[in-house]
Design a protein around this nucleic acid. Structure first.
Length: 479
DNA sequence: TCCAAGTCAATATG
DNA sequence: CATATTGACTTGGA
């Protein structure tokens, strides 16, 4: 799609404003320059952007996204979730109406937003839309109206009867045929949807741990041994890899947020699925990272950052002022501190202790790659591993497991500093950096108290930093 | 071609 | 009913 002729370019300000996120904390601090801009260019919309795009703006979202300042994805999703639940609005409606995404996608996005700097242009779009929606004073009302409309339409339809012409956009139906012969999937035209059995997943995970990027040969073997289609195995690896990766991002963000120390928890906090899938995610960072560029053998966390940091940050002006710079230093030093505090016993241990279950091997054909999948005789699968952390550790002799991830993540937080460069305007960068302010939702895997302690400690530090930050830098939200 | 990032859409769960 | 999970598909880049 060749699109936009390019035009605007200096309307950036207005755009920025459009998308800008309301400073969470203080705000009201001084206002700003009046100079509103005008909205001149208005290149009319083209094909893309079928969505409402809340009100005004004649620019395509793509353009908005392109010039959007760095957004706090975590904060945005958090607020969206609040608004939606507070008003009894579902993800489906919101997704279809505002984001142009399906319910499942919305759920995923809201639950696991990736940090802005790790999103592609496309991936940023939904967040820009959400921000736009949040900024729209009538957002809730509009959605409510939609809801009502839908209901009405539904009633009508259900009531059998009559005409069908409502003013609704997405109208209905379409699905011709009928069901005539009952709920019977006619000619099985629809693929059955593969569902991997727990044992199969386990086997795949194990294989992944040994080799995140299996060779075609290995894939074939796996497929054969597990009795799956090759494509299924391939897809599984793709999905698993990217989902693991995403988890890491999440933790990265959350580690940075974390509400204040104490228990408390602000208003709505939920939203943390405790233990996700069993096993310690392993992620075994080991290499895995595709582009093996200059990876300095260090912690993997750094690797990630290096790899991604540059990402799209177009201009990298590091326009910092003295004060900020100092701030940065403080932060980083603190980070180290926290790092240590948080670490303690569980360094980056990758390797994942667990697993190693005493399975009896002897799979049919496992050879070379040394995989030993399948087999899985029993039930002692994942659940056990995750639930009984204690036992696991005992068995393996060490903890690692779960906590490891968080500590790693924590260590990576500070790395954000590199990200800093990406920000367009210093204010923004700084802001976003500390923006996690009270995030409240801490996801402690209620595991051990030790961990909690560490977390509390960390929170403290972070909190103090935030304080310091706001003190030194009178956040001004304009541009 | 392979990979990653986004999504969809079926199906699990709550 | 709504939300969460997940195998498969689509795009876009080397």
């Amino acid at each position: 799609a060749p699109e936009s002729p390019m035009s605007s370019s200096e309307s950036v300000k207005s755009l920025t404003e459009l998308v800008q996120q309301p400073c969470p904390a203080i705000e009201t601090s001084k206002d700003s320059k009046p100079q509103e801009s005008s909205e001149p260019p208005a290149s009319e919309s083209q094909s893309t952007t079928p969505l409402p795009l809340s009100g005004h703006s004649a620019l395509s979202i793509q353009e908005l996204v392109a010039m959007s300042p760095e957004l706090d994805t975590y904060g945005i999703t958090k607020r969206v979730k609040e608004v939606l639940t507070d008003n009894n609005l579902g993800q489906r409606l919101f997704g279809e109406t505002i984001l142009g995404l399906t319910q499942g996608s919305v759920s995923d996005l809201l639950a696991r937003p990736k940090p802005w700097h790790k999103l592609s242009l496309k991936g940023r779009e939904p967040f820009v839309r959400m921000q736009l929606w949040l900024n729209d004073p009538n957002n809730v009302e509009k959605l409510m109206d939609m809801k009502r409309m839908e209901k009405k339409a539904y009633m009508k339809r259900r009531h059998s009867s009559v005409s069908d012409s409502q003013s609704c956009e997405s109208s209905s139906v379409g699905i011709d045929y009928s069901q005539g012969a009952s709920p019977q999937p006619q000619h099985q035209l629809k693929k059955p949807r593969v569902v991997l059995a727990p044992e199969e997943k386990e086997a795949l995970k194990r294989a992944y741990q040994q080799k995140p990027y299996p060779s075609p040969k290995t894939i074939e073997e796996l497929a054969t041994q597990l009795n799956l289609k090759t494509s299924t195995v391939i897809n599984w690896f793709h999905n698993y890899r990217s989902r693991i990766r995403r988890e890491l991002f999440i933790e990265e963000i959350q580690a940075g947020s974390q509400g204040q120390a104490g228990s408390s928890d602000s208003p709505s906090a939920r939203s943390n699925r405790a233990v996700h899938s069993s096993e310690g995610d392993s992620c075994d960072g080991v290499d895995t990272e595709g582009p093996p560029e200059g990876k300095q053998s260090g912690l993997e966390a750094d690797e990630y950052n290096n790899a991604t940091t540059k990402s799209q940050g177009g201009q990298a002006e590091s326009t910092f002022e003295v004060g900020e710079e100092a701030l940065q230093d403080v932060r980083s030093s603190e980070k180290t501190e926290s790092f240590h505090l948080g670490m303690e016993s569980l360094e980056d241990t990758d390797d994942e202790g667990r697993l190693k279950a005493p399975r009896q091997s002897s799979p049919p054909g496992s050879q070379s790659s040394g995989e030993t999948l399948e087999t899985m005789p029993n039930s002692a699968t994942e659940e056990d591993a995750s639930t009984s952390a204690a036992s696991t550790s005992v068995l393996t002799g060490e903890s690692s497991y779960k906590s490891k991830e968080s500590s790693e993540r924590i260590s990576s937080v500070p790395s954000t500093s590199s990200t800093l460069a990406t920000g367009s305007q210093k204010t923004n960068s700084i802001q976003s950096l500390f923006n996690f302010s009270e995030a409240a939702s801490s996801k402690n895997t209620r595991d051990n108290t030790l961990r909690k302690k560490k977390a509390a400690n960390l929170n403290n530090i972070i909190h103090r930093l935030e304080k310091a930050a706001s003190r030194e830098e009178p956040v001004e939200w304009e541009f």
